[in-house]
């Protein structure tokens, strides 16, 4: 069972974890991406996330489906990504998966967050005291 969301509201991590609970799952693995106070040594004030919503939701679902194909023992997968303005410490993304045993839960969780970063149509702009940059835009 796959649960995907893209939201401009704060992510309720505890609620996200509950969505992957399963009687057959002995392992629940979670990745929480939070806003860091520095980027390549430069103090960060805030981030702004922008999304191409329909494609981001579609691609997030595809990534989750690919994980289920690769690890058929996956019971449940939840991916929630935030958009809008975020400040230091805010949760930007939560990936949670449940599996019977732990090894596959680590692997699937890592696959999902790594692939999300490569394909999902979400853009992050970092704001510093003295300027701003679209992350990864230039070589």
């Amino acid at each position: 069972m796959i649960h995907i969301d893209l939201t401009d509201q704060p992510i309720d991590v505890a609620a996200a974890l509950r969505t992957v609970e399963d009687d057959g799952a002995g392992a629940i693995n979670t990745f929480i991406g939070a806003v860091r106070n520095k980027s390549t040594g430069r103090p960060v004030v805030r981030l702004e996330y922008e999304a191409y919503d329909s494609m981001a939701l579609h691609q997030l679902r595809k990534v989750a489906e690919q994980a289920v194909e690769q690890w058929p023992m996956l019971k449940k997968v939840t991916v929630i990504h935030r958009k809008g303005t975020l400040y230091i410490g805010d949760v930007a993304v939560v990936v949670a998966v449940s599996t019977p045993h732990r090894a596959e839960s680590f692997a699937a969780c890592q696959y999902i967050i790594d692939t999300l970063k490569q394909v999902v149509t979400i853009w992050k702009k970092e704001f510093y005291e003295d300027g701003d940059v679209w992350v990864a835009a230039h070589p």
């Binding site: 991406g33 329909s54 993304v93 970063k117 149509t121 992050k124 679209w134 990864a136």
Partner: peptide
């Protein structure tokens, strides 16, 4: 078609 230009993504 619904067409969009996709610069380097940076979610997560």
């Amino acid at each position: 078609d619904e067409i969009a230009l996709i610069p380097p993504v940076s979610g997560g």
